[in-house]
Amino acid sequence: MGENPSVIATTSPSDAILLGAVDIALAALLEQVDKVDVGPALGAVQEGDHVATHAFDCLRAGYRGWKWSVTVARAEGQDLVTIDEVVLLPGEDAIIAPQWVPYKDRIRPGDLSPGDLLPVEDDDPRLVPTYSFGDDPLSADDKAQIRQVAQDLGLGRVRTLSVEGRELAAQRWYDGDGGPEAPVAQSAPAKCTSCGFLVRLAGPLSEVFGVCANGNANDDGRVVSFDHGCGAHSEVQLSRKQQPLPPADHAFDTLTSDEFEQL
């Protein structure tokens, strides 16, 4: 482990003293890390004038692809090598945690429990103020004033779906389990548009969607597209070969006990 590792060239003048300080870097590393967790030297990189970093393979369980990084430095005109820092860094093949995703982007239907709150931001593009008009964006003060007036007058909802919010919901529903591409719809004998259990909606979404009201269907109480379908369609009929066989005629046992004993 004391052999000179490969050197990665930089635009700074080569510092042979720092690039050759493998043993010094290793000694500093072993002061903080168990020897069994340290592998061979992987090379050295000159970070700038009088600063270089030595890398060592990490053998610690659970850290495959990681490397120990030891940064060394020296003062101008001095040969004394000092230690700047010792850290553990991920390599190209390292197993690392996935990129952070804000909680509001991780929430999925069914994640909320009783008592959980999921606030909606004032500038959420899916919503627009119900009691405002015009295309000009509203300031935070204007939005707060509209909310207060709506609350004082008891006018109902402060915000309603924007065109973008409506289109996002429609696309999500159409692509989901209540749309035409669902496996149950692909094998359905007829579409929801002709089903007697379909409850029509009001508003712009009524042209594409309804709500299933068949208590025996998988989609009962859910939004379905008109071109969705399932086997519980109101007009579905079984073919003759699919109908259950009628029960056989009753058989009357006329065998007496005396006749039974003679058998």
Score class of each variant (00 low, 15 high):
E235T: 09
D177N: 08
N214R: 00
A21L: 07
L29S: 11
L88N: 06
D123W: 12
V86G: 03
G110A: 09
V208M: 08
F56N: 09
A21R: 08
F133L: 03
R64I: 03
T11C: 07
H250Y: 10
G77K: 12
H233K: 02
Y103H: 03
C230P: 11
K191N: 06
A27D: 14
V224S: 05
S14C: 02
V87M: 13
L201D: 03
N218L: 04
E259Q: 12
R157K: 14
A170D: 04
S132G: 07
P114R: 07
V199I: 08
G2K: 14
G196T: 14
K35V: 11
V149N: 14
G110Y: 08
T10S: 15
V236D: 04
W100E: 04
R240L: 10
A232D: 12
P90A: 05
R147Q: 09
G48Q: 02
Q78H: 13
G154A: 08
P125F: 07
L118R: 09
M1C: 10
D23Y: 06
T256R: 13
A94W: 01
E261I: 00
R157C: 06
S69K: 14
D227V: 03
Q145H: 15
V70I: 11
D15S: 12
F209T: 01
S69R: 15
V236T: 04
V120Q: 04
V184Y: 03
A251F: 15
A21F: 07
R240G: 10
L127R: 13
W173P: 00
F252A: 05
D37M: 06
V38I: 07
W68G: 03
P13Q: 10
S225L: 08
F197I: 01
D15F: 11
I24C: 07
L29H: 10
Q242L: 13
S239K: 14
A94N: 01
A213E: 03
L18Q: 06
G65N: 12
T10W: 12
R200C: 01
F226E: 01
R200A: 05
A232S: 09
G110Q: 07
S139A: 05
